[in-house]
């Protein structure tokens, strides 16, 4: 695999300058995610306006893939309903784990993560933020782990 497939310019840029980095105070929903393999730690904050996620932030530390994925996610899901976000997560999951299909157009900039499938050890890095967002929106409040 070519490293440039994994570390595309979009990924490097979002790692260096993560968008929507920071926290939201309650009543925003939040959840913490942890990837024990590499020590990635993320907290996702989401404000729900009815079914629509109107505001989204994240903070934490992690590898370039996990930070860029979280940053891209915050841009992609703002203004979407929980159902739309669930569908988008499904598409991202396919993108990360399947090598055959071309990235559907509705993924937009998230398609920059397509190189991850060639590095199976890194799939969890990219999916951590999505699992954590799910937990925040479900309001479960229990920490999410990739293990």
């Amino acid at each position: 695999m070519d490293l440039k497939e994994l570390y595309r310019d979009v990924i490097l840029d979002h790692n260096k300058r993560p968008r929507n980095f920071g926290r939201l105070e309650p009543p925003a929903h939040s959840a913490r995610g942890h990837n024990p393999l590499c020590g990635d730690q993320l907290t996702i904050y989401a404000t729900l306006d009815g079914e629509v996620v109107s505001e989204l932030r994240f903070e934490g530390s992690g590898c370039a893939i996990s930070v860029a994925s979280a940053s891209l996610m915050t841009e992609a899901v703002r203004g979407k309903t929980r159902a739309e976000i669930g569908r988008l997560f499904g598409l991202v999951h396919d993108l990360l784990t399947r090598s055959d299909a071309p990235a559907p157009a509705e993924l937009g900039k998230l398609a920059a993560l397509s190189g991850v499938h060639g590095f199976p050890a890194r799939v969890k890095c990219a999916s951590l933020c999505w699992h954590t967002l799910n937990a925040a929106l479900e309001g479960a409040g229990v920490p999410v782990s990739t293990e």
Binding site: M1, L3, L37, C38, G39, C63, A64, A121
Partner: peptide, 23 residues
């Protein structure tokens, strides 16, 4: 500085270099 160990581990693996990264 600026490179998370986990990214470094992937990059070195592409060069055939096996190291441990993490805690």
């Amino acid at each position: 500085e600026g490179v998370h160990p986990h990214d470094l581990g992937t990059i070195l693996d592409q060069e055939g270099i096996a190291i441990r990264t993490g805690h």
